[in-house]
């Protein structure tokens, strides 16, 4: 069962003796439902990674960094987890995120999606969905609403969208919320 897109899974392991980009490794690319599960079944769950590590799933040809030409005008829907949620929620939310991406859950707005990242951090893990153009308000909001619904977050929970250009300058301003 072929997917609409070919996806690349990346792994980042923090090693401060190396440049950031040298810590980022492409694991594998896949473009079928069956290969997705083969990959998923052979890698560590996100909750088992050590702090400082990331997984990223991006469309083939887009590197999981702000600097990539297909990311630099974009931003991310960010889900921040409390420390205690690593064991109760992280793996389920990350899997739901992956299924939204490979299943093209955002309908025609799926073309705006670049990828998703899970950051494993001692102060609290984060999951984000990256889109390519922060100014495409209709697409960004559609993706945010659908994503929140798929994660099963309560209507009271609020997730924010931050433009990479703002994040790069250390501003944590939410451009949109759903």
């Amino acid at each position: 069962h072929s997917l609409e897109n070919r996806w690349a899974l990346w792994f980042f392991k923090n090693d401060s003796s190396q440049a950031w980009q040298d810590n980022l490794h492409l694991i594998i690319k896949f473009d079928t439902v069956e290969d997705f599960w083969a990959v998923y079944g052979h890698i560590q769950l996100a909750s088992k990674l050590s702090s400082g590590c990331d997984y990223a799933l991006f469309k083939d040809g887009i590197r999981p960094m702000w600097e990539d030409s297909r990311n630099k005008r974009g931003g991310r829907w960010l889900v921040s987890l409390a420390k205690h949620q690593r064991h109760s929620k992280l793996d389920r939310l990350w899997l739901e995120t992956l299924l939204c991406l490979i299943g093209e859950s955002f309908e025609e707005h799926s073309q705006e999606v670049c990828g998703a990242v899970v950051n494993i951090r001692t102060k609290g893990d984060k999951i984000s969905v990256w889109t390519r153009e922060a100014e495409n308000q209709a697409s960004v909001l559609h993706i945010g609403h659908v994503y929140k619904q798929h994660l099963g977050l309560s209507t009271k929970a609020i997730i924010g969208y931050q433009a990479h250009a703002d994040t790069a300058t250390k501003s944590t301003r939410n451009k949109f919320v759903v």
Binding site: S2, L3, E34, W37, Y40, C100, G103, E104, S105, S110
Partner: peptide
């Protein structure tokens, strides 16, 4: 058309042995 798959469809493949 676009290949869209809902989560239930995708999850059905999770533990399916690979066909060779």
């Amino acid at each position: 058309g676009k290949k869209q798959y809902d989560r239930e469809f995708l999850l059905d493949f999770q533990f399916m042995p690979a066909c060779i």
